[in-house]
Write a protein that binds this DNA or RNA. Structure first.
Length: 468
RNA sequence: GGGUCCGUAGGGUAGCUUGGUCGAUCCUUUGGGCUUUGGGAGCCUGAGACUCCGGUUCAAAUCCGGGCGGACCCA
């Protein structure tokens, strides 16, 4: 892929996922095919969350007074908040913010809900849209002004330990989610200057894009008691004393879809993991004059068999050359194509072509086993897509030991660089400036030696890259 | 915040320097018809655009000013 940016922009339109021509900067339209991918992705995620969370829905408007309560938090967002200032022709008494995220919408309510330790823990999530007035270059799904798909979980606990455990649970859920989609990732602790405003610390998932830059695709925050103190969320413990709660929150966004597209795509177009593909199988009947009925009878029957078993299948009977159909469905990322022509029917076989590796196979046709056969292939495609994505991220991750190597590696190979680091904020910010990169964060590791940048004793393994 | 560049059918473009030949080029898209179908077929016939406002001029897609929109670079 020569130019990822351009490829990404084009594929959204070519595969009929989104229309970015909506006349407001940073806002796009989900087209039916894109919306289905989004829907299947969300179903997968919400199923994982439902095991221990409950789904809720909070209002989109937040009064200025609530939004402004937590000083550090609001500072992190104030430059990108959209405001509603009028109701009809009248000025509102109090400005209302379009939620940039929902802490300040939810936590005043949590304060009402929590009375005793019996009310804890609370674990809720919602999937909503949020708004951020981005000033940098917007890009569909990656940097947008309306995040149309913002899945945010919020939990409330009696103890610090429980909150700490919940952070691990959040990470575990997201891992499972990304694994199911075959999206590779690295996890690290964001540096102090880049954590979620108001949080104790932030754990982040980053995936690597085809051009070597990384994209943040998920975050898990330990909020400590900051918000509890601001919004007065207290409970009565079993000794009758009031204590502040410990909170976490974690979220995912449209960027998951962006990384899904980026992780698996190639020059031909999308490669969709079967679990989220709007069409998992496309049947292309090869129709010759005088033999229409033979072929169509066969493919209609095949389509019904697959459909009845729950496979998302589409038969393409359009009056077009088969070649054109192949290109089109490949561009759209359908995992498996089945071709059936008169010749195959004579031989009692069908042709399968996998989108992930392009392999073409003639397989014997048996009505009783075809569903199993197709499911096996789809499962294998899922595995292969994930393996390929993980391999790419591994190959693009480099350990370096000198400042020269940082520059050289970033410029030549791109990707993620790991090295020893002192953990000092001044040193970190200096690195970001000097090497023109971002510090993603640190990972737990036994580190010997010195900081690659300042030469002090190293305490961490740090991840750095160019980012979106 | 500062700077550079750019706006021609749904998408991509030619024309602009040197105003007139533009009734605006080509590819793609798209309606209808014929024909055809094992990797983007062909033919016939239709559809579709000069970002907006003002100025200069006999004459503006083309020159000038402004608005709106977009891309990129720097802080």
């Amino acid at each position: 892929m020569k130019n990822f940016s351009e490829w990404f922009h084009n594929i959204l339109e070519e595969a009929e996922l989104m229309d970015a021509r909506y006349p407001v900067k940073g806002m796009s339209v989900w087209l039916p095919r894109g919306f289905k991918i989004r829907k299947y992705s969300l179903e997968l995620l919400e199923k994982l969350l439902d095991e221990e969370h409950e789904q809720t829905l909070f209002p989109m408007l937040i009064p200025e007074s609530e939004l402004a309560k937590e000083a550090i938090h609001v500072k992190g967002f104030e430059e990108e908040v959209y405001w509603v200032t009028k109701g009809g022709l009248r000025d509102l008494n109090e400005k209302l913010a379009l939620r940039p995220t929902s802490e300040t919408a939810m936590y005043p309510m949590f304060s009402l809900w929590v009375r005793s330790h019996m009310d804890l823990p609370i674990k809720v999530y919602q999937t909503v849209n949020t708004f951020r007035y981005e000033t940098k270059h917007t890009r569909p799904l990656i940097r947008v002004r309306e995040i149309t798909t913002f899945n945010e979980s919020h939990t409330v606990h009696a103890t610090e330990e429980e909150a700490e455990e919940q952070v691990q649970t959040g990470i575990k859920i997201y891992k499972e989610f990304f694994d199911a989609l075959g999206i590779s990732y690295s996890i690290c602790k964001r540096p102090a200057w880049d954590k979620f405003p108001g949080s104790k610390y932030t754990m982040a998932f980053d995936t690597i894009m085809p051009d070597g830059k990384t994209l943040q695709i998920g975050t898990v925050h330990n909020l400590g008691t900051t918000f509890a103190k601001t919004f007065d969320i207290q409970f009565e413990n079993d000794e009758g004393e009031h204590e502040y709660v410990h909170q976490t929150c974690y979220g995912l966004s449209d960027r998951v879809i962006a990384s899904l597209i980026a992780a698996h795509g190639d020059e031909k177009g999308l490669k969709l993991p079967p679990v989220v593909a709007p069409e998992q199988v496309v049947i292309v009947p090869i129709i010759f004059k005088e033999k229409e009925d033979i072929v169509l009878n066969f493919t209609d029957n095949l389509e019904k068999l697959l459909k009845d078993s729950g496979i998302r299948v589409i038969q393409d009977k359009r009056d077009m050359r088969p070649g054109k159909k192949y290109y089109e469905w490949e561009q759209r990322g359908v995992p498996l194509r089945i071709e059936v022509g008169p010749r195959d029917i004579e031989n009692d076989s069908i042709v399968t072509i996998r989108r992930d590796n392009g392999n073409k196979e003639f397989i014997d046709y048996n009505e009783n086993t075809i569903v199993d056969t197709v499911n096996e292939i789809l499962d294998d495609i899922t595995k292969e897509l994930k393996a390929a994505s993980n391999k790419f991220q591994e190959e693009k991750t480099f350990f370096v030991e000198t400042p020269q190597q940082i520059k050289k590696t970033i410029n030549k190979k791109g990707g993620i660089i790991t090295c020893n680091w002192c953990g000092n904020t001044d040193c970190g910010k200096d690195m970001e400036e000097q090497y023109d990169i971002d510090i993603l964060g640190t990972q737990e590791a036994q580190v010997d030696g010195i900081c690659v940048h300042c030469g002090e004793t190293a305490h961490h393994k740090v991840l750095i890259s160019k980012t979106y």
